[in-house]
């Protein structure tokens, strides 16, 4: 089990973000404990992906602070050279699993997974190859190194992307809709994978999802984002016990409740 670390991995403090008149995040504050699995639920188009992108500085919030191990990402402006360097350094603590994998088309699977190691470490080619094989084994895809991303199925692509995200064994792994576009068995496999990696490598996971089964299975902290507001947030057991109406609506797949889409 991971040793107890008291400093939180992520702290959001009053984060807001709007695109034009559309408020995507509205005064969101939360804390993610180091070594936990946080699942953020919410209907599509409610700013979950925006939240994720704010964490790594791909987007800057209009207001509020985004602390990553105590450092404010929101204060860093990518267009200023010094901030840019700081931001890129900070991002090395993250691994990110993109929704469609975002594998590089012009590299084979092995090179995709090796890419972060080639960029950021001085490992020899043999060591890198061994690590790539290890990461691919962890996601259950041994021996696919020489395949092109386009030859893989959606589920395999995602798992390769997962291997790439954990290549440098980052502190925090961000997963953007890991189960979207996958069949239930493959989704369950990915969930198992997250749990397995969490247990063996002790990483912090932040998972964006609209899959309630996934949330139940892996989350130790759970949040619900609706219309840009953090409706509920807390330890999974408490949140489920509390029976918050929006959350209940989400779990019951009901059109009746506080969340309105039509």
């Amino acid at each position: 089990m991971p040793e107890p670390i008291t400093a939180p991995a992520i702290e959001l403090d009053g984060v807001s973000k709007a695109f034009g008149a559309n408020k995507v995040l509205d005064d969101v504050s939360l804390t993610v404990r180091h070594g936990s699995i946080m699942v953020m639920l919410g209907p599509s188009g409610t700013g979950k992906s925006v939240l994720l992108r704010c964490l790594v500085g791909l987007l800057r919030p209009d207001a509020g602070r985004v602390l990553v191990y105590g450092e404010d990402v929101a204060a860093l402006d990518e267009s200023r050279p010094r901030d840019r360097a700081r931001l890129f350094a900070l991002r090395r603590r993250f691994g990110m699993l993109f929704q469609d994998g975002a594998l590089f088309d012009d590299m084979d699977v092995g090179d995709n997974v090796a890419f972060p190691m080639r960029m950021h470490t001085d490992l020899s080619e043999a060591q890198i190859r061994a690590k790539v094989a290890d990461k691919l084994r962890r996601v259950g895809l041994s021996g696919v190194e020489r395949k092109a991303p386009s030859e893989l199925s959606g589920g395999m692509r995602k798992r390769v992307a997962f291997a790439r995200a954990i290549a440098l064994e980052p502190d925090i792994v961000l997963c953007d809709e890991p189960s979207s576009g996958l069949d239930p068995v493959m989704s369950a496999t990915l969930d198992e994978l997250i749990l397995e990696l969490h247990r063996t490598l002790g990483m912090t996971f932040i998972v964006i999802s609209h899959d309630t089964a996934e949330a139940k299975k892996i989350a130790d902290t759970i949040g619900l984002l609706a219309s840009g507001k953090l409706v509920t947030y807390g330890p999974a057991a408490d949140v489920f016990a509390e029976g918050q109406p929006a959350l209940r609506q989400f779990f019951e797949r009901s059109t009746e409740g506080p969340i309105r889409v039509l």
């Binding site: 991002r91 090395r92 691994g95 993109f98 088309d105």
Partner: peptide, 18 residues
């Protein structure tokens, strides 16, 4: 452009590669 719309540019940035 393809890398951008497929999120690969973001992926590079997240992997701290400018």
């Amino acid at each position: 452009g393809t890398m951008k719309v497929r999120g690969q540019i973001d992926a590079l940035a997240v992997m701290s590669v400018d």
